[in-house]
């Protein structure tokens, strides 16, 4: 039983690339769900668009990464429009159904044999799609601290990733404290009331959908650059729901919620997983197989999502006054 290893893994992951990707996705959901009340159950589609834009444009078409990124962002806006136009005038559940359906449409399409030449089928796209980014790496050595181990490449991705998150968090903070933020929060509470005061709720909802989607797409781009591989089955709906759990853990409609949530979430998830693995390997737990650890982690996420949504939607550090409101 190597507790140092378990802790080290957990901390590395909690601050690492995966946490960054999920943090970005959750920041998008925070704008959409936390502030505007839009139930986007297909955030993973936006991430997939980002990741596949990089993969397809750089590897399949041999173009530059610096062309792929803006194209990916444009594609993301287009996706938001496609999702929003039919559904944003309708009740909230239609958006939820259509977004989750679309995320599956996208996954099934990129996975299909018919489009294998472009998207690589079930194997996805593998290759040095992030090279142009890694060429700019100013770091010369890996990090190997007792509780933190990153390769030089990871270190560079992590540095840029958290910087992006800092910038986007600042932007979110400015947005939600402005009159614009007031309108979207009003829409979350009661759309008709806001409309009756002369605000075009449809446009605001579309803006929130686009902005939140863009954040998810940035997450997908980071994914492709960091992992140098995109596979369709990385983009299952569960990614969206992990992001929701992260958002609720940190607190919906709280500017720092996604950051706090992503760090705690990945720390806990990796810690529980590694801890169980070690216990099983050491023979202390005999009723579980190593393959059982995966499902157990998912079960914890599922229970966490339910529990947080029911008891603490404003996050584990949330505002008591808001809690009192929910109890009315």
């Amino acid at each position: 039983m190597d507790l140092t290893f378990v802790l080290g893994q957990s901390i590395t992951q909690a601050l690492g690339v995966t946490a960054i990707i999920y943090c970005l996705a959750a920041m998008g959901l925070n704008l959409q769900f936390g502030y505007t009340g839009l139930l986007n159950f297909g955030q993973v589609a936006f991430a997939a668009i980002g990741a596949y834009s990089v993969g397809v444009i750089v590897i399949s078409f041999g173009a530059s990464l610096w062309a792929a990124i803006p194209i990916g962002l444009l594609a993301s806006v287009a996706l938001a429009l496609v999702l929003g136009i039919p559904t944003l005038r309708l009740r909230a559940d239609y958006l939820a159904i259509v977004t989750i359906a679309t995320s599956e449409i996208i996954r099934l399409m990129v996975r299909s044999i018919a489009l294998r030449d472009t998207f690589g089928g079930a194997n996805g796209i593998n290759g040095k799609m992030g090279q142009a980014f890694h060429d700019l790496n100013p770091f010369h050595a890996d990090i190997d601290l007792p509780f933190l181990t990153w390769t030089r490449q990871d270190l560079w991705v992590v540095t840029v990733g958290w910087s992006l998150i800092a910038i986007f968090t600042l932007a979110t903070w400015l947005l939600v404290r402005s009159p614009w933020g007031r309108v979207v929060k009003g829409i979350r509470e009661d759309e008709n009331a806001v409309v009756s005061l002369g605000k075009n709720a449809y446009v605001y909802k579309m803006q929130a959908l686009i902005l939140g989607g863009l954040l998810g797409t940035v997450g997908g781009i980071v994914w492709a650059i960091a992992k140098q591989s995109v596979q369709p089955d990385n983009f299952v709906p569960d990614v969206t729901f992990f992001s929701y759990t992260i958002l609720l853990l940190g607190g919906a409609a709280r500017v720092f919620g996604p950051i706090v949530g992503a760090i705690i979430f990945w720390f806990l998830l990796v810690f529980v997983g590694e801890f169980l693995n070690q216990m099983i390997a050491a023979g202390w737990i005999t009723f579980l197989l190593p393959t059982d650890v995966g499902p157990i982690r998912f079960i914890l996420v599922g229970l966490g999502l339910m529990g947080l949504m029911i008891f603490r939607p404003q996050g584990i550090f949330g505002d008591k006054r808001e809690l009192a409101l929910d109890a009315r």
């Binding site: 909230a92 559940d93 569960d238 729901f241 759990t245 599922g302 529990g307 939607p313």
Partner: peptide, 23 residues
């Protein structure tokens, strides 16, 4: 509990049931 919150709860429940069966 609002309907939107309830929908998120159904998602959590689905994940829990699915992976419990897998386990």
């Amino acid at each position: 509990t609002g309907l939107i919150a309830s929908m998120v709860v159904t998602i959590g429940l689905a994940i829990t049931i699915r992976y419990t069966l897998l386990l």
